[in-house]
Nucleic acid binder design. Structure first.
Lengths: 142, 142
DNA sequence: TCTTGAACCTCTACCCGCTGTAGGTCCTAT
DNA sequence: ATAGGACCTACAGCGGGTAGAGGTTCAAGA
């Protein structure tokens, strides 16, 4: 049996976050000590590790919930889990593309501004006038 | 004089968002019609366009506030604005790097899972066991 | 056995950057 | 005069937590 602090240390998750996961039903309610403190099984530790690792890979909590369900009921999980992972991969690729366009724009802005012309700031100019941009960055970055 | 709806259409910003910007002090309080509706000058339109464009480039609102201040008082803005833009560029580059590591991990996971072994799902396995990862992705993605 | 003090508890509010809803008012074209 | 779209305020909620107040429990040392 582990305390919440042990889970926290072992998975690098803040104590509040673990309680938050319980609150939103991602972690099961653990048994309690006579004094009302949470006591966890090894299985809970594993579950939390799974959650944290998935978060580190950028999965949203909803997707993690699905993955956990699949993991719990291993009737036919592979195809479904695979689909979730592929979806996540597409998301990540999309974000990379968007960020690359942003980087290009920012780089151009900063590079152009390199001179010591104080009166006319290229950075502010570009921000003021969208038409100076190469790309159409319709969707907000990230 | 423009209505809030005009600003909304012209800058692609939702009406509520414009009011929100006013609330947090990013947009100035406009004059009102006799019936209490907001009426904007061209300068406000420009300011909003500046804000939106900066957001599209991923600047957080705090940074935009600074940029607007610099833009308003053009005594010595260039170096400061440049610094803000460079900071943003670094942030974007950092995020790209992190996402690339994520992508690699996800790709490996998904590719490995390609077989039709239903019982043993590679995706779930990797999520369960962090030690199967190549990289240490300490900080949460995005 | 008692005492400390670290770790635990609940509850509430806050972060960013909006978005949505409810319930009401204004403005303008017909 | 009226219809109905655009506007108003106020508040709640999203994701994914984080911080703090104010109180209790637990375990190790004296």
């Amino acid at each position: 049996m582990h305390t919440i602090g042990t889970l926290s240390k072992r998975t690098g998750t803040k104590v509040q976050t673990i309680r938050y996961y319980e609150q939103i039903g991602l972690m099961r309610e653990p048994v309690r000590s006579s004094g009302g403190q949470r006591r966890y099984h090894d299985a809970d530790l594993d579950r939390l590790a799974f959650i944290r690792h998935s978060r580190q890979l950028g999965f949203p909590l909803d997707a993690i919930r699905e993955l956990l369900d699949l993991s719990d009921a291993p009737s036919r999980p592979c195809a479904d889990a695979d689909a979730i992972a592929r979806r996540q991969l597409r998301q990540v690729e999309l974000r990379i593309e968007r960020l690359r366009a942003l980087r290009k724009e920012l780089k151009r802005m900063v590079d152009d501004c390199d001179g010591d012309s104080v009166a006319e700031c290229r950075v502010l100019e570009v921000l003021r006038d969208h038409s100076e941009c190469l790309t159409q960055h319709e969707e907000i970055g990230a």
